[in-house]
Write a protein that binds this DNA or RNA. Structure first.
Lengths: 108, 108
DNA sequence: TCTATTGTTCGATAACAATCGAACTAAATG
DNA sequence: CATTTAGTTCGATTGTTATCGAACAATAGA
């Protein structure tokens, strides 16, 4: 079984987090997870190839934004809310609030 | 005299803001302006060519993060704190707080 | 008017990123 | 064991970006 790399909470870099969330597709994924909780990759409703989705999930994981848990053939993705809160207080919630009010109501 | 494009407050895009701030050089510039207030481009102490600095300032300006005011031969750069606060409450301060505690004390 | 000063723009380069489809891997299930 | 399901990885393509130096533009000052 594959072991997936996750940065430790204290290794999470601000630049990587901001970069990961600057992509509309990834922000949409994060927004969806924030609303609906942990879910497997196959349940995301985004109009992209599965290899591209895999790439985006990986970017989010390596940035420290999501945790990926393997169960059978499925990969369950959840937000690292507490880790991010400790490292960068209010950052995630503030960005999600901003996304809620603007980005998500217009595009994607 | 050149007229510089600035997006209106309500046109500022979250993705563009996050992207602009994900670059370490640009985050450093914004952090400096936040600490020291408006200043001209020539006062930034960053180890890059002036054409590169010009490019970064432009990226920040077009993202809606800074306002550039021309006075003589100098370009004075300031944060669009209020505009950003209205559009994305707490976003800038939260990111700057995160940068203060981590990024800026380690690198650059 | 000549010369600094300040910054932009241009052209080139090198690195990186988003995207896709095809091939692959691993687990569950018939 | 064969098949389906769920994702990853690879190779290719296309586009973007960070960087530099050189040339340019505009203003201020001698």
């Amino acid at each position: 079984m594959k072991i997936l790399y996750h940065p430790a909470a204290e290794e999470i870099q601000l630049g990587s987090v901001l970069y990961a969330l600057s992509d509309p597709t990834r922000l949409c994924l994060v927004h969806t997870i924030a609303k609906q909780g942990e879910q497997s990759c196959s349940t995301f409703e985004v109009p992209i190839a599965k290899s591209t989705l895999s790439h985006h999930i990986r970017t989010l994981r390596e940035a420290g934004i999501v945790r990926v848990r393997i169960q059978g053939t499925q990969h369950f993705v959840s937000l690292r809310t507490e880790d991010l809160e400790v490292r960068f207080p209010n950052l995630l919630s503030t960005i999600l609030q901003a996304a809620q009010n603007h980005t998500m109501t217009e595009e994607l």
